[in-house]
């Protein structure tokens, strides 16, 4: 399996995503520059965190027009797996790969802290190795993470099981106190209709080493392998 991690100007989690694949999955991974025109045979694409193009206009709005994104969108349309993390989630929404948008945190504060996620759907490329309802602890680090969509879109996502992760408290309640950014319905991550494109604001690539406080990101990266080597 080969993973392509896209580097945009301003990406700052691309190396971490690359290391997650190479060191923790023992699989092949390559950085793909935003001006590239081909995915170099990547089976899976990761859109990493950061501040692509300085977040100018809106987070993710400009990255969508980079040459490599045309390839990523074509890959996704063919059913190819795409994972968007943090800024990558914002880019995936702007590119129309996922519904909704990520707005300024309700607190107006940049939030850098560990959160607890509940896995709501284990039939996506990024969660299929996880237990349904599992609680995962990993960090967030964003200023624009408030997931927003029309009510009817949210209802449809809910009905189709496309809400993949929710922010919950220690008891598993999707409470306002557990919601770090004011996301509608405590949504931390969503999937496309086929579960092949997944976006989330938290950083699983920063939760792979005990030294960093959590290894709960591993199960998500291992999910990428589940379909390949099963």
């Amino acid at each position: 399996m080969k993973v392509g991690v896209i580097s945009f100007p301003g990406s700052n989690c691309d190396e971490d995503a690359l290391l997650a694949v190479v060191e923790h999955l023992d699989e092949d991974a390559v950085l793909l520059w935003h001006k590239d025109h081909d995915l170099q045979g990547a089976d899976i694409v990761i859109l990493p965190g950061g501040f692509s193009y300085g977040d100018y206009l809106r987070a993710g709005a400009i990255a969508r027009f980079s040459p490599i994104m045309q390839e990523v969108v074509a890959h996704a349309k063919r059913g190819g797996p795409v994972v968007g993390i943090c800024n990558g989630f914002q880019i995936a929404c702007e590119a129309g790969l996922l519904p909704g948008a990520l707005l300024r945190n309700a607190s107006l504060q940049f939030r850098s802290m560990p959160v607890t996620l509940r896995v709501e759907n284990t039939e996506t490329i990024f969660t299929r190795a996880a237990e349904p309802g599992a609680h995962l602890i990993m960090p967030i680090a964003h200023g624009d993470g408030r997931y927003t969509a029309d009510e009817d879109v949210l209802d449809r996502l809910e009905g189709d099981g496309r809400i993949v992760f929710r922010y919950v408290d220690a008891l598993g309640a999707a409470s306002a106190a557990a919601n770090p950014n004011g996301s509608m319905r405590n949504i931390a991550g969503v999937a496309n209709e086929t579960g092949t494109v997944v976006g989330l604001m938290p950083h699983p690539e920063r939760a792979l080493e005990p030294l960093l406080g959590s290894t709960d990101g591993l199960v998500l990266f291992r999910s990428l392998l589940a379909g390949v080597h099963a």
Partner: peptide, 13 residues
């Protein structure tokens, strides 16, 4: 401008 009805924390501040 933010769509009417959406939470606008900057506007509120």
């Amino acid at each position: 401008v933010p769509r009417k009805g959406l939470l606008d924390p900057q506007g509120k501040a």
